[in-house]
Design a binder for these strands. Structure first.
Length: 223
DNA sequence: GCGACAG
DNA sequence: ATCTTGTCGC
């Protein structure tokens, strides 16, 4: 049975994005979240199934608190701008079985740096009413721009004269990432969180670990 | 019509 | 995202 919150056709998906985009809040974070969840997906060999994982980490200790995995049949194609309708359901499933509720979501993909200002980070953030940040490895929209080479250097990601995110250097000699608020977060906070969770990789640690876990789990034998 | 296009 | 070999650098 299709998840009600995720229409299976592009027409209704776009309409839902336009509607939910109105609920996004770009408010500053009250405080630095302690429990953070990184999420990511992988496609099982054969392309019939999608694996979603959530890695919960504690900021003060840097420890992994919990990891959860979910699998679902793949029912939505990859369409630029509609990624959340492909990966959203399985990611929600993985997040739903976490014992502890995260205070923040770090997502692989865009937040408001999206044609309708509603990327997967925004979508998950709004549905779960959690602060969220989108970290994209490549650009969906907005103008490309050269960034300084030091860690922490950044440039605004501009689209039609509006700042929709940041092009941020998280490591030297490594391509910058595209950071944007998902929900209940502002541009400054989004950048600060990504840098605060940097542990030597291009992506923030929770997302980096979620990426590795998903790629391990996609080959796992099902019980 | 043409180019661009998260994962 | 996935496929896919060796290679360069920390």
């Amino acid at each position: 049975m299709p998840t009600p919150e995720f229409p299976q056709d592009a027409k209704r998906a776009v309409a839902l994005q336009r509607q939910l985009a109105g609920l996004v809040q770009l408010t500053p974070l009250a405080r630095l979240p302690e429990l953070v969840a990184g999420v990511d997906c992988a496609i099982a060999p054969g392309g019939e199934e999608i694996v979603g994982v959530a890695v919960l980490m504690r900021f003060s200790t840097g420890e992994v608190v919990e990891e959860q995995v979910a699998r679902r049949p793949l029912t939505f194609p990859y369409v630029p701008g509609l990624l959340s309708f492909r990966e959203g359901p399985v990611l929600l499933a993985a997040l739903a079985v976490l014992t502890l509720r995260p205070e923040l979501l770090l997502c692989d993909g865009q937040g408001i740096a999206h044609p309708r200002r509603f990327g997967i980070a925004s979508h998950l953030g709004v549905l779960l009413d959690l602060p969220s940040v989108g970290i994209g490895k490549s650009r969906l929209c907005g103008e490309e721009r050269v960034v300084g080479e030091q860690r922490g250097d950044w440039q605004p990601l501009m689209d039609k004269g509006i700042c929709i995110g940041s092009i941020l250097r998280t490591r030297e000699r490594v391509r910058p990432v595209y950071v944007s608020p998902g929900h209940r977060c502002d541009q400054e906070g989004a950048r600060a969180l990504v840098l605060a969770w940097g542990r030597g990789h291009r992506l923030p640690e929770p997302v980096h670990l979620a990426d590795r876990l998903s790629k391990r789990q996609r080959l796992a034998v099902l019980p």
